[in-house]
């Protein structure tokens, strides 16, 4: 009876922890979505100047979220199971994970540029393959480097503070990824002089 009561109480405490940590993360994420929406609405000039860009933006942003939520979750699992020490040092296994995330991020950015070109042709616009590839390659490199640093250090920081990164890192990273993704697209369009 006492064991059963103990199990129920432990379950309740876990539920409270999930609800508390995830709700805060979700509210920040939804609010961050509004910031990303404002940045996107300020990009109408760029979207008009670069045909095909709009069709690729949702995929580019989603890919940033997917690659780095996954990277954050793997780091979190390794911290939980003791394969990584919670230290602010990006080397060894953590560096290997970071390089894998970087490689995936770059290859997917280039793929998205090519897919956007093909889809835009079918939709009747006439994009430049060179422009789309250049924009997404530059934006991919910049955003990958920034996201690796933010994700890894946030994971370790959360874990050291006793917060389960699994409850927080997904919403947090997708939101930051949206904002950084859009800003790096603007920077790469400007860098290419378009």
């Amino acid at each position: 009876m006492l064991v059963r009561a103990g199990q129920v109480l432990a379950g309740m405490s876990e539920v409270r922890k999930i609800v508390k940590e995830s709700t805060v993360a979700e509210i920040l994420s939804v609010s961050g979505g509004v910031v990303a929406g404002i940045i996107l609405s300020s990009m109408t000039g760029i979207l008009e100047r670069v045909p095909g860009l709009l069709a690729a933006i949702p995929a580019f942003l989603n890919m940033r979220g997917a690659v780095f939520s996954s990277f954050g979750a793997r780091i979190s699992t390794r911290l939980h199971i003791g394969e990584l020490e919670p230290k602010y040092r990006l080397r060894g296994l953590a560096l290997e994970e970071a390089l894998a995330a970087f490689t995936l991020g770059i290859s997917q950015s280039v793929l998205i540029g090519m897919l956007a070109y093909v889809v835009s042709l079918f939709m009747g616009t006439s994009p430049s393959l060179l422009h789309l590839l250049g924009i997404f390659a530059i934006a991919g490199i910049l955003s990958n480097v920034i996201m690796i640093v933010i994700t890894f250090y946030s994971d370790v920081w959360l874990y050291r503070r006793g917060i389960d990164p699994n409850n927080v890192i997904g919403p947090y990273i997708t939101t930051i990824g949206d904002t950084i993704g859009l800003l790096t697209i603007i920077i790469s369009v400007e860098a290419m002089g378009l």
């Binding site: 999930i18 995830s22 993360a25 979700e26 994420s29 939804v30 961050g32 979505g33 509004v34 989603n62 979220g65 939520s69 954050g72 979750a73 979190s76 699992t77 939980h80 199971i81 389960d164 990164p165 699994n166 409850n167 890192i169 997904g170 919403p171 997708t174 939101t175």
Partner: peptide
């Protein structure tokens, strides 16, 4: 925001279950 919420909660359940 509806997209963000569904994706976020999806990633949380996958991350928690994997660990």
């Amino acid at each position: 925001p509806l997209n963000d919420m569904a994706g976020d909660l999806g990633t949380i359940v996958v991350a928690r279950l994997t660990t």
